Simulated assay, not measured.
Amino acid sequence: MRGSNGYRVALACVVIVVAATVLPALFGRGPQPDIGDLGDPWRNFVFNYQTLITGIAAVVAAFFTIRQISETDSRQERRHNELVKLQMRPDRLCMERAINPQLEHIRYINTKLRAYDFGLESFAEMKGAPEWHWLTKVSQDWIEDLTGLQEIIKRPQFRDALYLFDGRTTHAIYDLEAFLPSALEALQKHRRFESDFDPNISEHEEYDQNFTSIFEKLSVGFVFITLGAVTLADLMRLAAAEYDIEIR
């Protein structure tokens, strides 16, 4: 209906222009100076200013042409965007399932890990090796959080979206997958040693060897785990923005 009305208006404008210019130019009475007849004023106006009228008509025609082209381009762009959204819908739904609620769970664990702000100097006044007390504290607090982080990145809805993540995100996931199992194993092993050995008894050579290995493994692994978890959360937030996903 709208297009039909526009066509009628344009046709009416053409008829008016033809009636106002072409007809007077063809059939209007020209000036006859010998008898003192100045002729048809409207015909004379069209004849004298035909170049100006033609220029104005060309500008008006160009304006409407550009406007029509712009509207056509806008419609094509809207159709293109709709097609792109339709084609991306499966990927967007897959990414949405990977981000919600996994991102909030990872953020929660990151908050808890950052809250554990203590170093070996915190245990310097305690009897025995500071490394022992540090690792004991870590094993008491972190096993649950690291297990939860490992469970999150193993969820099916998270794994299904791996092909949609960029290189940095998959690298962060790789770091977590590489270091979480060994860190958890080290913490669990230390808890067993804690119940079976006294770190202040020097004759437990086997314990000393295992303790050094566990402490070094966890110290390195925890750096990669914390950095990987923070990086993963940040990159998942960017992915949510890219796919226009609301984080819940």
Rank of each mutant, 00 (worst) to 15 (best):
A240V: 01
K154F: 02
L26D: 11
R237D: 11
E194P: 09
A115H: 13
Y49M: 08
V138N: 06
F215E: 05
E205M: 02
L146Y: 07
G148A: 07
Q87I: 09
R237E: 15
R168P: 01
V230Q: 14
S4P: 04
Q150N: 13
R248L: 10
V223K: 00
Q188A: 02
S122L: 11
L162S: 00
E203A: 05
R8A: 13
A239N: 13
S182L: 11
S70N: 09
K189V: 03
I106C: 01
I245C: 14
E71N: 11
R75W: 02
G6Y: 04
T51K: 04
L235T: 15
E71C: 11
L52V: 09
P33D: 11
S182T: 15
E246G: 15
T170S: 11
F197Q: 08
L83F: 04
G36M: 08
Y163H: 12
G3E: 03
M95C: 08
W132F: 13
F165G: 04
P41Q: 07
R79A: 14
I16F: 14
A115W: 10
T169Y: 02
S202Q: 10
Y49H: 15
K154I: 05
D37F: 13
W42R: 12
P181N: 09
M95P: 04
L238V: 13
E77I: 11
Q50V: 08
I173S: 01
S4A: 14
V220K: 04
V14A: 15
L11K: 05
V15R: 01
E71M: 07
L86I: 05
Y207C: 05
F179Q: 13
L83R: 12
E206I: 02
E77C: 11
S182W: 07
I201M: 00
F123D: 12
Y243K: 10
L232N: 11
Y174Q: 13
Q76F: 14
D196M: 12
E121I: 03
V59T: 09
A241M: 08
L93I: 06
L162H: 06
V223M: 03
D37R: 03
I16T: 12
N48T: 12
I66P: 01
V230S: 11
T226F: 07
H133G: 02
L146V: 09
Q150W: 07
L26I: 08
C94P: 06
V17W: 14
V223I: 10
F47Y: 07
R192Q: 04
